[in-house]
């Protein structure tokens, strides 16, 4: 990786940086993705082009004639953010070769939600990564198709009620577990894959910066609570992004050239397992999981806890095995 020095940042540094994702966007109050992307854009290191998949963040930031983007920004379709990044990066490369690019270097960031990453955009993402384009792919994972009204995606966790996996008398929400997207990206042999949660803002910003510094594709999985879709209190958005890490539902870690490292918030839990919170602590305030607390669905709660523990144990194993 091209990183020579750790990017040292304070809250003041970030507070003083202008917003690249500008105010006046039309995300819901307490929107996790809007907050996460606002932070992401505070970590850019120079000239940057952003391309975004169709989805909540694309829609709320680009309602004509208004834009919330202070950097060049392109949207084409739902499944195309990584393919767009390929074309932009290829164009920048050849224009530079021909002496037609003013900038010494331009970073390319592709943004997509869980639908545009786990599902419809996955083929384009996998292809772009295999081809080795130099770009950072930022997945803001709010765990369902929120823009169209809370339909399940490959990123929706087990038990969550969505409008296509409603909690009914026979089916207790989504029956399948979440697709392990970061592992799948690691399997591509990428130089940099990381997960981050907005409560830990410094960790998130540093990961964006590291992802940009990689010369080649990098993948960042952001946890992004959605008050509207999760049926949570908008004021608790950041709180849930903390609880998800504390319960190991969403551990934060980095994989650099196949080497797994837990980031500090998750490392502290690994070092002091008694600090690990039960998943129920994370699930209980969320309307999408309310039905799981009915006695007949206890088996679902148990399974979610079991699966979370298993994934957490496996992650720690990978950290040891690749140390």
């Amino acid at each position: 990786m091209a990183t020579t020095q750790e990017w040292k940042i304070t809250a003041k540094d970030i507070a003083e940086k202008p917003d690249i994702l500008m105010p006046g966007h039309r995300a819901c109050a307490g929107c996790g993705p809007a907050h996460a992307l606002r932070l992401v854009m505070k970590a850019i290191r120079g000239p940057t082009i952003v391309t975004e998949a169709t989805g909540c963040m694309e829609v709320v930031t680009s309602i004509y004639p208004y834009t919330s983007w202070a950097v060049p920004w392109l949207h084409t379709a739902f499944e195309t953010s990584a393919a767009n990044a390929s074309g932009i990066e290829a164009a920048l490369k050849v224009l530079k070769r021909k002496g037609k690019l003013k900038q010494e270097h331009v970073d390319v960031i592709a943004i997509a939600g869980d639908g545009g990453t786990f599902d419809i955009g996955f083929q384009a993402l996998s292809g772009a990564v295999e081809r080795g384009h130099d770009f950072l792919f930022v997945l803001y994972d709010n765990e369902a198709y929120m823009n169209t009204g809370i339909q399940r995606s490959g990123g929706t966790p087990m038990g969550a009620a969505t409008t296509t996996t409603p909690a009914g008398s026979v089916m207790p929400g989504k029956l399948q577990h979440k697709k392990p997207i970061a592992d799948i990206m690691v399997a591509h042999g990428m130089e940099y894959v990381a997960s981050a949660s907005p409560y830990y803002w410094k960790d998130l910003l540093q990961k964006v910066r590291r992802g940009l510094e990689v010369e080649g594709p990098a993948f960042l999985h952001l946890f992004a609570p959605c008050p509207r879709g999760w049926r949570t209190d908008p004021a608790k958005t950041i709180n849930y992004s903390k609880l998800a890490v504390e319960s190991c539902v969403f551990p934060v870690y980095e994989v650099v050239n196949g080497k797994y490292t837990l980031s500090t918030p998750s490392k502290l839990i690994a070092l002091a397992p008694q600090k690990k919170k039960p998943v129920a602590d994370y699930l209980k305030g969320q309307g999408r999981y309310r039905h799981l607390f009915a006695p007949q669905n206890k088996h679902m709660l148990d399974e979610i806890q079991r699966w979370t523990d298993e994934r957490w144990a496996k992650l720690q194993q990978k950290v040891e095995q690749t140390a």
């Binding site: 694309e58 680009s62 309602i63 834009t67 983007w69 060049p72 920004w73 392109l74 084409t76």
Partner: peptide, 8 residues
């Protein structure tokens, strides 16, 4: 010269 292309 940032511009927003392909909006809604």
């Amino acid at each position: 010269n940032p511009m927003t292309m392909g909006p809604i």
